[in-house]
Amino acid sequence: MTVLDATGAGADGCEHHGARMLASLERARVYALPDAPAGAAIRVFKAADGIRPFCWVDGPRTRPSQLSHAENRTQHHR
């Protein structure tokens, strides 16, 4: 996987780490590498939706920027 940030800078990685990176960056994009299995980019995109960004930061995770996109959608509709 290649994950690009909002400026176009990127990093390659596996699906697991690509999803974590995608979840942690604003306006990031994901692309499958040429040798990636079929559907890899969409799997990373879907996984990132439910992953909290920056999971290695301690403390209560209550601010919208600390929650997953899915959690933010759920809280927004309450």
Rank of each mutant, 00 (worst) to 15 (best):
W56K: 06
E71H: 01
D58A: 14
R20G: 12
R43C: 09
T74M: 12
W56V: 11
A40K: 00
M21R: 15
R29N: 09
W56S: 13
D35W: 13
V44A: 04
L33H: 01
H77Q: 11
G10L: 10
F54H: 15
P34E: 01
Q66H: 03
M21T: 15
P64N: 09
I42V: 14
L25R: 04
A38P: 10
V44N: 01
R73N: 06
A11S: 15
A6V: 00
G39P: 12
I51C: 02
R73I: 05
R73F: 01
G59Q: 02
A36D: 15
A28H: 02
G13S: 06
R43I: 00
G39Q: 07
G13C: 07
I51F: 14
Q75Y: 09
P37W: 00
A47H: 03
F45S: 11
H16F: 11
A38S: 09
R52A: 08
R63M: 13
R63L: 15
L25M: 10
L22K: 09
A41M: 02
D5F: 03
H76T: 09
E26Y: 04
R27Y: 10
A19N: 09
F45T: 01
R63H: 10
A40R: 03
A23L: 03
L25G: 07
D5N: 14
H76R: 15
A36W: 01
T62K: 14
Q66Y: 00
V30C: 11
V57K: 10
A47N: 10
M21C: 12
A41C: 03
S24D: 05
W56Y: 15
V3P: 01
L25C: 06
L25F: 07
I42Q: 14
A11L: 14
S65P: 00
E15I: 13
S68M: 03
H69M: 13
R29G: 07
A38M: 02
D5V: 03
A6G: 04
K46Q: 12
P53H: 02
P64A: 12
D12G: 14
I42K: 08
R29A: 14
D5W: 01
G8A: 00
A41D: 08
L67A: 06
S24A: 10
H69Y: 12
R61E: 05
R52Q: 09
M1H: 02
T2I: 10
P34V: 00
R43L: 04
F45H: 14
A28M: 02
F54V: 13
V57T: 12
R29H: 12
P53N: 01
T7V: 06
I42Y: 04
L22E: 07
D35E: 13
G59T: 05
G50T: 01
V57F: 10
I42W: 10
Q66M: 07
E71N: 07
L33W: 04
R27A: 15
V30E: 08
R20N: 06
S65L: 10
A11P: 08
A6K: 05
L22C: 03
L33Q: 07
T74E: 13
Y31N: 12
A40V: 00
G59E: 05
D35H: 13
H69P: 06
D12L: 09
W56A: 12
R29M: 11
A32G: 11
T2P: 01
P60I: 06
A23Y: 07
G59S: 03
E26T: 06
